[in-house]
Nucleic acid binder design. Structure first.
Length: 255
DNA sequence: ATGGCATTGTACCAATGA
């Protein structure tokens, strides 16, 4: 099974690029974030036409998540009590007996802002949710834009990042707490000691200068990770004209 | 130190992103 996650920054603008990539890479399951489209305007049929089941959980203007899957999705869940602002940030389903959770964690705006505490609260509640889930299954994949860079290897310049949003100690600790309850950071496991990024700002030629961050993840429980063959970031998609500011991540799991 | 760019809605600008 080939799984992927991509912060697409508008599903409507990126539709052709997404469909092309899905088919080229033969992706079975794709979690998307920042679709920026309410469900009544979601391009469902474009996905169905190329062989994907599609579920979305969107809202007007911002946020929004979706899952496209060639395999049938069971127990689709949209909206969780953990979101204090009731924004459209999480969708989950079960595919081949694996619980797949697709999440778009709040970015936090500025360190110390109310949005920052909303983000920390969200991460804490996400951990609680995953902890309770682990009592009933050890087959979980958590994918998405977690908006936190874990280590020095995940930022272009750790010296300049210490007090910036996405790299403060409380955020990184919240993320480590999630890993500590039993998740493997798949991309990092396959790229030890390597600077790898999944996001490059549109501004200041960031991509060409490789000024990036790794804030997108595929996390797997041990039960799933031991079947993983690779996990990588496809920066070629970020290089394309008119792309999202995030690149897709993809992983292969052999069953 | 700031803004740099792209997207959205209702729009000729403000809000959001990270």
């Amino acid at each position: 099974m080939k799984i992927a996650t991509w912060n697409v920054n508008s599903i409507r603008v990126r539709l052709d690029q997404i469909l092309e990539w899905l088919q080229k890479e033969n992706i079975d399951v794709l979690g998307m974030q920042e679709i920026k489209t309410p469900d009544d305007k979601f391009p469902y049929n474009n996905f169905r036409d190329v062989g994907y089941n599609i579920e979305s959980f969107g809202e007007v203007g911002f946020n929004g998540v979706a899952i496209a899957s060639k395999l049938s999705m069971e127990d689709v869940k949209k909206g969780f009590v953990l979101d204090a602002r009731d924004q459209k940030r999480m969708i989950s389903c079960e595919i081949n007996g694996i619980k797949i959770i697709n999440v778009y964690v709040p970015n936090g705006k500025n360190v110390g802002a109310t949005d920052y505490y909303y983000k920390l609260d969200y991460l804490a509640k996400l951990k609680e949710y995953l902890s309770s889930l682990l009592k009933s299954t050890n087959r979980i994949i958590l994918m998405g834009d977690l908006n936190v860079a874990l280590s020095d290897l995940d930022v272009y310049n750790s010296n300049q990042m210490g007090f910036k949003i996405g790299f403060t100690s409380p955020e990184r600790n919240a993320m480590k707490d999630i890993l500590d309850i039993g998740f493997f950071d798949a991309c990092r496991e396959f790229h030890k000691n390597e600077k790898i990024f999944s996001f490059w700002d549109y501004r200041a030629n960031s991509f060409l200068r490789n000024v990036g961050l790794r804030v997108d993840y595929i996390l797997m429980t041990k039960e799933i990770f031991k079947k993983a063959v690779f996990c990588d970031i496809d920066a070629k998609e970020r290089a394309k004209r008119g792309s999202s500011d995030h690149a897709p991540l993809y992983a292969q799991i052999n069953d």
